[in-house]
């Protein structure tokens, strides 16, 4: 209960600290508005028109529908990348052989542009859900893998000795010694991967799907509808910001209280 209350308090303090971020976003909107005035509505509709278009899309229902489809694809690919990347990364970090063997492969995976994977996925999976999900998975997995590997690699052997000396049972050794350390590497990697999954899924849909936000963007582009394009972009970016700053960042702060605590 006390823990919950202190957690709530730190969350409120965190929200209050968001005023600075909001101020800088407002500045960005002001520059956008100014640029919109300069270039005219056809090239760059100003924020007000963009938000009105977005409100229209939401009111007619299509926004939520497309966003749900996109989110589902992104989350499935992201979830698979988390599961596979975290597990393989941990294993690789614990074994020197696995580490040496997996490193070059990971470098190849990270170095291959997502668009190349997308073309391959199109050939393999066609126009269904498979293409965006696979592309998201391939783009996110190596990043999670590297995070998990570094986490396991940097485990402190001295703390392992403490665990042995104080006869920690295997499960407690994992939850109290290994996990807190690994999570501090893994969590930032997960957040990065989530951002990438969200970007890649839109790109994949734009080229490969007939529904989802990416497809809607393709349609608005073919209609030369800049306002709708910007509205969709705003929706996608806004959703990512909300998830990252209202959900993940507070969790990260709570987990890593021992690092930053005042």
């Amino acid at each position: 209960m006390i823990l919950l209350r202190s957690g709530l308090k730190s969350f409120l303090i965190y929200l209050w600290s968001g005023w600075g971020a909001i101020a800088s976003l407002m500045l960005f909107l002001a520059v956008w508005e100014w640029a919109g005035l300069y270039y005219g509505e056809l090239i760059l509709p100003n924020p007000r028109i963009t938000f009105q278009t977005l409100a229209g899309l939401i009111a007619e229902g299509s926004a939520w529908q497309e966003l749900t489809i996109t989110a589902r694809r992104a989350l499935i690919g992201f979830g698979a990348a988390l599961a596979v990347g975290s597990t393989l990364g941990l294993v690789a970090g614990l074994s020197m052989t696995a580490l040496m063997m997996s490193r070059p492969i990971v470098t190849v995976l990270i170095g291959t542009p997502p668009i190349a994977w997308l073309v391959l996925a199109l050939l393999w999976f066609g126009n269904g859900d498979g293409t965006p999900i696979f592309t998201v998975f391939v783009a996110c997995m190596p990043i999670v893998f590297v995070g998990a590997m570094l986490g396991a690699r940097t485990l402190d052997g001295q703390l392992g000795d403490v665990a042995t000396a104080y006869r920690l049972p295997p499960l407690m050794r994992f939850t109290d010694i290994v996990l807190p350390h690994v999570v501090s590497y893994l969590f930032p990697a997960w957040i990065t991967a989530l951002g990438i999954s969200w970007k890649v899924v839109v790109m994949a849909e734009l080229l490969a799907s007939s529904d989802g936000v990416g497809a809607a963007l393709a349609v608005s582009r073919s209609h030369l509808d800049t306002a709708a394009t910007l509205a969709w972009i705003t929706a996608v970016v806004g959703l990512l910001l909300a998830v990252e700053y209202l959900l993940l960042e507070p969790i990260k702060r709570e987990i890593e209280r021992w690092r930053v605590a005042v």
Partner: peptide
């Protein structure tokens, strides 16, 4: 029931 004290305190930083 042996207990050990190491050269450094070796506390768990997250506890």
């Amino acid at each position: 029931n042996p207990a050990c004290m190491f050269q450094q305190p070796r506390l768990l930083p997250w506890k």
